[in-house]
Design a protein around this nucleic acid. Structure first.
Lengths: 238, 238, 238, 238
DNA sequence: AATGAATGAGCATTCATTCAT
DNA sequence: AATGAATGAATGCTCATTCAT
């Protein structure tokens, strides 16, 4: 099994710059210093940390936990190997810390409070669209895949995601489904008992694209729409 | 990440014996000699090979490819390390060889020819039952999970499974769905366009049980039944 | 360093046959049984032993001691690995036994009694010709090279060759040189003190051809003749 | 073949110190900093590299390429195994790199421009003396032996030495011989056609001392002098 | 804080030797 | 005697982690 560079087009320093501007993932670490010109020690440290996180995610999603080398993460982040250990106690801590925080905000947004006057179908459509736009087509999809792939080896990680991503997500979906049943939009009461059924195509799409996307890509959006038709009992034209 | 024995209750010799009786995986290698007492060289070799396969599957499913040590496979199989290299050229060949062949026969059986006079619902029910009995509750479920987890790192493996497991499986399901639509059992024509929707809960269940089964087990059978109700438009009692 | 087959054109069975007919090296082992048709156990064993010796020499000269694999010797000899251990206690014993006996008879012939009425020059010419024909152009040259290459690591082997090949050889040459001096053929008396000087070009040629022969072959015969001219004080035409 | 320490009298730290003072081999790496007390990172690295080179030469010359263990080189150099891989990509690269550079400067000096007003005999005498002092009696002699022993297995190494050591050396000797012929010092014109004849005793001495030096040492200096007498046609007193 | 050279435990693979058949 | 499957010690190389600068 040869080892290939994850992204040879990105040189280390460029990667560092790009990483410094990482959206979302490490925003908490960089307190948006009052002035861009001001570059305090703390700001620099935050930048570095963000670069490391960015690089680590790239490597971990591309290679998995075991096959990722700290050396490569460091190179990609544009820092020295030792620097990583100033931010993370060890490789596993880095992995778990990164993967833990990477999805929570997104999932919280995805399963946010439904607006009152909206139909269940519209809610699920919004959810599906958000998933396609914010997860399936971004690096978050890779992270989701990573959690599924490595979760078995990191029980605490799996449980963390269950508590913070899956459970709330399923609960949110269930609320929507119950609303749909209550309003008569959905005829199958069993669906609310297994909200997983509503999410299953999302899980499948993540796996599918990761394994087969290269040669047999799936039109996730269309599939999710067909799924909603199924749930809401609408007969689609053949 | 501390390394723990995958199954400390099984001593090496016992493992070897158990392996000798391995169901399915290496059956081709042991031609069921006329008499059990007969123990030819070939039979012994087949036994050993079966033991290695068994052990390797245990270790690979428990730890993943990278974290599995040949030494542990050997110990678990009750053979010396060198013996493994009499049967497989290297670790990766062993991994791919095992995982490639492990699912194909089962999947072929699962998606076999539907009996003529049977309803689409019955067919899918049979499929769901077979999956629960032969995959979800056996080691094949672990292997399926393993393919999902490592497939990204082994493109040829992913493609092999696509061609030999996924594509035929999806095609089989599609035929059933089309039959259902033709017979009026299924109202949603879009389903036949995305047979993946019919299989999605199966994929979800594999992932779910692998990650969360320990603390939040899923009643896969019940879920699949609910899913069929959804597909066939039957309103289940709440 | 990739490992390449020493002689891919020779298949194992053919090699065995050819080995069975090995000239010289193992003749002592095959007592020329009364009748060729008779193939006693002993004769078969001798044949096998000869095949092993032949194969071992091929491999050892091609790869050196450390890089030669018993497995390859067995394959080349057309016998099973275990069979080798019926004839030799271990790899080193095989190596030493082979290399020890391979040169002695030849060297004895090369330094045999000088015919009485022959000039010193003629004697040395005969020696040079014999060396070129029987050593430089045959596998014995490889063996000589092998001894030079591995001798440092096998002190007893080096000493054996000193006692049985070098010492007698040098003594023989010295006798010839003294004869030449006594007869007035040779003017330099110092030569007889260092008979090694007379043999030095022979040693050089073995090394040279082994290392550089591929791209810078040496005309050994011509060089040896020039050397004789030097020794016997004849001025060669430019 | 029992494995014995090459030089048990030298403890690791001592070896490192000694290596730091290695003559010639790694001189380029240590830029002779202004003050001996100054110990920059670069200097330390150079020291380490020199220690590794020294140790590796010891081991390689004592055991040959295949039988040398990286572990032993590391121990002897007083560094950890991994450190070696910071300086050389792998064992073969280390071997070739060391052996390639070890002889070139010496050989260049040996075959340097002859002073104009000097006789051919004096030139060859200077060459012989330099060889005895700088090669035969130093570790360079071992390296030369090593090249002869392993050259067959490393064609590129053999060719490198041919181009950089042998070819220029032979050319230099040839020039001297031609000068001698032109001046009437040398009567045999054939000698200039085979300058190898002038070097042959040098080659023989390297081999001889390596194989038989322990129990039958050769007075190389005297032999080379006798050889010069032979070349220049002087009759030595018996 | 940052660096990156140094460390050494860890692991895949090889191969001489043994021994049951 | 002959076989070749099985063994397991040996060894090259990797890479997470440490620490002197």
């Amino acid at each position: 099994m040869k080892r290939a560079p994850t992204d040879p087009s990105v040189s280390a320093p460029v990667a560092a710059k790009r990483a410094a501007a990482a959206r979302g993932f490490a925003s908490a670490a960089k307190p948006a210093s009052e002035n861009e010109a001001i570059s305090t020690r703390a700001a620099k440290a935050a930048e570095r940390r963000a670069a490391i996180i960015e690089a680590a995610l790239d490597e971990f999603t591309a290679r998995g936990f075991a096959a990722t080398r700290i050396d490569d993460v460091a190179k990609r982040a544009g820092v020295a190997k030792g620097t990583i250990y100033l931010h993370f106690t060890d490789k596993e801590a880095m992995f778990q810390e990164l993967v833990r925080t990477a999805l929570v905000p997104t999932m919280q947004r995805l399963t946010a409070q439904p607006s009152p006057g909206v139909s269940a179908r519209q809610m699920l459509e919004a959810f599906a669209d958000a998933f396609v736009n914010d997860v399936a087509q971004t690096r978050r999809g890779d992270i989701l895949r990573l959690v599924m792939a490595e979760g078995t080896r990191f029980p605490s990680l799996a449980e963390f995601h269950y508590r913070n991503v899956v459970e709330p997500g399923v609960a949110g979906i269930r609320r929507i489904l119950e609303l749909g049943v209550a309003r008569g939009e959905i005829s199958s009461a069993a669906l609310a008992q297994f909200p997983q059924l509503a999410v299953a195509p999302v899980v499948l799409s993540v796996i599918w694209q990761g394994l087969f996307g290269r040669f047999a890509p799936l039109d996730v959006q269309a599939m999710l729409r067909a799924h909603l038709d199924l749930i809401f009992g609408e007969r689609t034209a053949s």
